[in-house]
């Protein structure tokens, strides 16, 4: 399983809608932008977002002798993507499955997808601490996994759930690489006043409390939202933005970490 994959990073959050998929896709694109070969695996089976975010909806998965061939975003084959979204007939089809079927599907994604040599495999997850998460953690015991990046918003109601996810990571023994605080503050385009819609600094406080690194704070930037549906990296499209700064830092952090081996 995942024999040719050098590093595995899981993106987690107890809470839904905090930006796990956005962070996963932009991190994958940023890693590619800096010259890495990257895979992105979406294990959110009931609500896959990665195909839409990368503009890959409607792509079909093919089978070869060794298993499923992931979708490549372009000819260079530097970003490979797998999601249940590619296996559904229509984008409005629900996946009404209980745990055991979800577990089986995730095992197949990990075992039967023909990932070529990859520097990084990013795994995007659904919210919660249930079947998908238990399964992926069990499978990752057999492969070298670098750890988990936790995404949160600064709101108390999100932090409540994220604290549970941190406990989950500690109990399952996965290394916590750190916390990314997303949707922290919105700068009004009309008057440039910054409003902390979903409060502020919650991610930093949680990082201190849980004694794990704070990897950066991302503002609400509608320009990043507009990149959805393309494979454009924030690093090339919005190099001056604070989102790009945080992503650059994150890539550097991962590179240092993996260089240490």
């Amino acid at each position: 399983m995942l024999d040719k994959v050098k590093n595995v990073i899981v993106v987690l959050s107890g809470k839904g809608g905090v930006g796990k998929s956005t962070v996963s896709t932009q991190l994958a694109l940023a890693l590619r932008h800096t010259g890495h070969k990257v895979g992105l695996l979406d294990i959110d089976l009931c609500g896959p977002s990665v195909p839409y975010l990368l503009g890959l909806e409607g792509s079909d998965i093919y089978q070869c002798d060794d298993g499923w061939v992931p979708i490549y975003t372009d000819e260079s084959k530097t970003l490979a993507v797998m999601s249940i979204g590619f296996l559904l007939k229509s984008r409005t089809d629900p996946v009404i499955w209980r745990g055991p079927k979800k577990t089986m599907m995730i095992k197949q994604f990990l075992q039967d997808v023909k990932w070529d040599e990859l520097d990084y495999l990013i795994i995007d997850t659904p919210p919660g601490t249930s079947d998908e998460h238990i399964t992926v953690m069990e499978c990752l015991r057999e492969v070298p996994c670098n750890g988990a990046i936790i995404v949160t918003t600064p709101q108390g109601v999100a932090l409540d759930d994220v604290r549970k996810e941190i406990t989950f990571c500690k109990k399952t023994g996965i290394k916590l690489l750190g916390i990314v605080e997303n949707m922290s503050g919105f700068v009004c385009p009309h008057c440039t006043t910054c409003t902390n819609i979903f409060s502020s600094n919650g991610g930093i406080e949680l990082a201190n409390l849980a004694q794990i690194p704070h990897l950066g704070t991302l503002p609400i930037d509608p320009r990043v939202g507009i990149l959805a549906g393309t494979t454009a990296s924030v690093l090339s499209e919005l190099p001056e933005s604070s989102t790009a700064e945080v992503l650059k830092g994150l890539v550097q952090h991962l590179d240092t970490l993996t260089a240490q081996g």
Binding site: G14, T103, T129, I134, K164
Partner: peptide, 13 residues
């Protein structure tokens, strides 16, 4: 505690 995680598969939920 708010840190307590419910790590359950489907049947227990």
């Amino acid at each position: 505690s708010v840190d307590d995680a419910i790590i359950w598969r489907g049947p227990k939920k």
